[in-house]
Design a protein around this nucleic acid. Sequence first.
DNA 1: ATTGAGTTGGGACAATTGTCCTTTTATACG
DNA 2: CGTATAAAAGGACAATTGTCCCAACTCAAT
Lengths: 185, 185
Amino acid sequence: MIRTNIDFLTYLKKLQLLHPHYFSIENYTSKEVILKDHKRYHSLYIIHKGIAKCYFTDENGKESIQEFFGEGMQFGELEVFNNQLSYCSTEAITDVEVFKISHQHYLELLENDTAFNRLVIQSMVAKISYKAPRLSFQQSYSIEQNILKLKELYPNYETVFSKKDIADYLGITLRSLNRVLNSLQ
Amino acid sequence: MIRTNIDFLTYLKKLQLLHPHYFSIENYTSKEVILKDHKRYHSLYIIHKGIAKCYFTDENGKESIQEFFGEGMQFGELEVFNNQLSYCSTEAITDVEVFKISHQHYLELLENDTAFNRLVIQSMVAKISYKAPRLSFQQSYSIEQNILKLKELYPNYETVFSKKDIADYLGITLRSLNRVLNSLQ
DNA sequence: ATTGAGTTGGGACAATTGTCCTTTTATACG
DNA sequence: CGTATAAAAGGACAATTGTCCCAACTCAAT
């Protein structure tokens, strides 16, 4: 549920020693928006500490949570390649510390550092591999099964996430979430 | 709805001239399975001609279609990097011609050919960018809105896909699809 | 203390969607 | 041809989920 990428983070820390001026560190407090949708950015972020949520907002204001980002997860990197506006927002859930790196420096590393290149590709593979079954599972199974799966994977999710976030993650209403949680005692 | 990647295909054809022994060509007829889930492969495929569907099957036999692949779409490439079993099946819808390349040669190109490397990354960016809003849209909107969207993006989808495929793509039952199509006249 | 905003919990009802089953139509094939 | 098989269509009913409420509680700021 909370995605991480420790290999990437570890390597990034090494790079930071080699190219200190490539990276800056920023801190966000809970509920601060780090990256806003429909805006253009020239940098991307990698989570050093804390948890953030990445979500779409539709025209009715309903949020749909894509992923919860933990240590080593990067966001805003897709825009390096497709040159589009940011297509979702990312907001701190706990207090968060991020590394920030410009598109330009990121591309430089990508071209000149084979290990970094491979780690970037692997991070993308992980994102695809994660999203694919999630789409299927939410389509195929009932809310109850989805919640049971959540509890299995992440037993104490209530301590970190609000009910609203859980509902937005599962693509259901708060009412439905409560109802099903009740029926499970 | 039918995904393509012409840039990738174009470049691949150039590579084929440079390294003819890297590639082989295979042909599949409608409904043949090209790649089966839970199996290990040592090659991956790129669609040259035709349309295929990529789908999960759950324990009840229900299919959930991830994407429809058209020209230039590759599949089986994630397993090059995560060394896992294939996590979904790909089946020809129309007759299909594919290029086949071994993991080993693919990795060789990835390391030695910067342009190829970039195209692979861009293909992954495209897959992520496509999956993300699809998850949200199907969660947030009614079946009716999803079908209207489909008709808008791909007016004559009925000519290519069976009703069952459309239902599996939208994550709904055939009965629900028929009902909603009726209510739209 | 008091207000107000945000979170949680749930009743009542409506709408949506699934399940099960039957029928019809199209298509393939000996 | 006729027959088997798959695809398409839909009736009847049940189950799930959403919508629209209202109430209780927490917590921060006044």
